[in-house]
C-alpha cells in the first residue's frame, strides 16, 4: 500500500513537473469550454424563442444541457487518455529506470497500481475542469446534482478502464509515440464498435456493441447506476491491470 502511494506520488510529480499536465488541462478546458458555451447559447436561444411564441415547455437543465454534454466529455476523454498513459512504462524502459523499479523490493502490481492511480488522478483533474463549468449552472439554475454525480462516477469508471488499457499498451514498447498511437487506435475502436448495432442485430454485432466502452456510459449519463454497466467497467479495469501485470512479468522472460 505504501509502495503504491510512493509510485503514485512520483508519477504525479512527473506529470506536474513537466508541461504534460498543464497542456492537457488547458486543451481539455478549451475544448470542453467550447462545447459548454455552445450548448448553453443554444439552450438560452431556444428558451427565448419559445417565450416569444408564447409556448411553455418545461425547460430542463439536466436533460437538455448536462446529459448531452457529459456524453461529449466521455468522447473527448478518449482523445486524452493516450496522452496520459503513453509514457507510463515506455519512458521507464527507454531511460533504463525500469531497472531501478524492477530491482527494488516492490511488487510489480504495486508499481502498476501506483502508475494507474496517478493517471486516474490526472484524468479526474481534467474532469474537475468540466465540473467548474457546470458550477455556473448551479449559480443560475437548479439542476439536480445527483444524476450529475452518477455521471461523473461513470466518467471515472470509463476513464479507469481506458487508462488500464493504455497502461498495458505502454508496457509493450519503449517508444512513447508508438504506445500513444496504439492506445489511441484502441480507444477509437472501442468507441465506434457500438455503431455496428445500428444496422446489424446478429449475435456478433451485439457482442461487439457490448464491448463498446461508450454504450455502458449511457445509463450513468441518465443518472442511473446500472449494475450491469458497473460490472462491465470494473471487470474491464481488473482485466486491464491483470494483463499489464502479466506483460511486465513476461518482459523479463522474453528479453
Amino acid at each position: 500500500m505504501r509502495n503504491i502511494w510512493t509510485i503514485c506520488r512520483k508519477e504525479l510529480g512527473t506529470y506536474f513537473a513537466s508541461p504534460i499536465a498543464y497542456l492537457l488541462l488547458t486543451m481539455f478546458g478549451v475544448v470542453f469550454g467550447f462545447f459548454f458555451w455552445n450548448a448553453l447559447g443554444y439552450f438560452v436561444n431556444m428558451g427565448m424563442e419559445m417565450q416569444m411564441r408564447g409556448e411553455t415547455m418545461p425547460m430542463n437543465l439536466n436533460e437538455q444541457i448536462i446529459r448531452p454534454l457529459l456524453s461529449n466529455v466521455s468522447v473527448i476523454g478518449l482523445f486524452f487518455i493516450p496522452m496520459i498513459t503513453m509514457r507510463l512504462f515506455a519512458e521507464e524502459k527507454r531511460s533504463g529506470t525500469i531497472e531501478l523499479l524492477a530491482t527494488s523490493p516492490v511488487r510489480d502490481i504495486e508499481v502498476i497500481l501506483g502508475k494507474w492511480f496517478a493517471a486516474l488522478i490526472l484524468y479526474a483533474c481534467l474532469l474537475l475542469f468540466t465540473a467548474l463549468n457546470f458550477g455556473f449552472l448551479f449559480l443560475y439554475g437548479k439542476p439536480d446534482w445527483k444524476p450529475l454525480a452518477v455521471a461523473y462516477l461513470g466518467l471515472l469508471l470509463q476513464g479507469g478502464l481506458l487508462l488500464a488499457i493504455g497502461t498495458f499498451i505502454s508496457t509493450l514498447t519503449k517508444n512513447q509515440i508508438i504506445a500513444g498511437a496504439a492506445t489511441f487506435g484502441v480507444c477509437i475502436l472501442l468507441w465506434v464498435l457500438e455503431w455496428v448495432s445500428g444496422y446489424e442485430s446478429a449475435a456478433w454485432a451485439t457482442v461487439l456493441a457490448y464491448l463498446s466502452v461508450i454504450t455502458h456510459f449511457d445509463s450513468f449519463a441518465r443518472g442511473v447506476i446500472d449494475s450491469k454497466d458497473l460490472i462491465f467497467y470494473l471487470t474491464g479495469i481488473f482485466l486491464g491491470l491483470f494483463i499489464t501485470a502479466r506483460s511486465m512479468e513476461s518482459l523479463r522472460w522474453r528479453s
Binding site: 510512493t6 512527473t14 513537473a17 533504463g96 525500469i98 531501478l100
Partner: peptide, 28 residues
Amino acid sequence: IGYLPESPPLYPEMGTVEYLRFVGKLKG
C-alpha cells in the same frame, strides 16, 4: 541488494534529494 546499473537509473525531472527520497522509500 544495492544496484548501480550500467547507465544510472535517474529521472531527469526530479531533484537530487527528491530522487534519493523516492528510492529510499522504494527500498523500505
